[in-house]
């Protein structure tokens, strides 16, 4: 039980997917202008990564590995993730329209979010079983959400700051904020 809990904590804080592993960086920098949108994207990412890491694990353990096809994992995972996102979108549209209207526009954007593929591949490297994979996926996505929401909060403040040197306005100041956040997250490294 403790080890399962540690998997979530490690994935969310110690090995933070954005600030430590640089995965999902594009959307981290691109969709973090407002807390609200960042939060919605985060929710969609939690949803997709948790499901995708479970499905990827089942595929690897019961299809690819027994057949000796583990070298096909990259191709299979990326296709499965793309198809899965599509299916999740269709399912939500039919079954939970409210959730679909909240997350809908973000779902297609997640298909090629490298964090999703990264988690699936990491789970294989770490030799996780089904439950561990799902928890690691969930933890990773929670870490992503925390990072993007915090950065969005900083950026909402930065938008009203007029003291930033001209050369540092825009992307540089956002990256500097991310650097400071990364330093702060280094403090978690003693946990695991």
């Amino acid at each position: 039980m403790t080890s399962l809990f540690m998997i979530v904590i490690t994935a969310a804080f110690v090995d933070n997917v954005v600030l430590n592993q640089f995965l999902g960086l594009c959307s981290f920098l691109g969709v973090s202008k407002q807390i609200e949108t960042a939060g919605s994207l985060g929710a969609a990412v939690i949803f997709v990564i948790t499901i995708a890491s479970g499905v990827a694990n089942l595929l690897y353990d019961f299809v690819l590995d027994p057949l000796g096809l583990s070298y096909l994992q990259t191709i299979v995972f990326i296709l499965v993730i793309a198809a899965l996102v599509q299916m999740v979108e269709m399912f939500l549209k039919k079954a939970v329209p409210a959730l679909h209207s909240a997350l809908g526009i973000y779902l297609p954007l997640i298909t090629t979010n490298c964090a999703v593929l990264g988690v699936a591949l990491n789970n294989v490297t770490d030799g996780y079983n089904f439950i561990q994979s799902v928890l690691a996926g969930f933890g990773t996505a929670v870490g992503y959400t925390i990072a993007i929401v915090v950065l969005a909060g900083i950026r909402e403040r930065l938008a009203y700051n007029e003291n930033i040197p001209k050369a540092f306005q825009g992307a540089p100041i956002v990256l500097l904020s991310a650097a400071l956040m990364a330093i702060a997250f280094c403090g978690f490294s003693g946990l695991a």
């Binding site: 600030l19 430590n20 001209k166 050369a167 540092f168 825009g170 540089p172 990256l175 650097a179 280094c186």
Partner: peptide
């Protein structure tokens, strides 16, 4: 380490901005 990556990229883009080179960042 990880934070250094963000720092170096921030400084590189700031230099590009300072030199008024048109990039996706500005």
């Amino acid at each position: 380490k990880a934070p250094g990556a963000f720092l170096v990229l921030a400084i590189i883009i700031a230099i590009m901005n300072g030199a008024q080179i048109d990039t996706a960042a500005n």
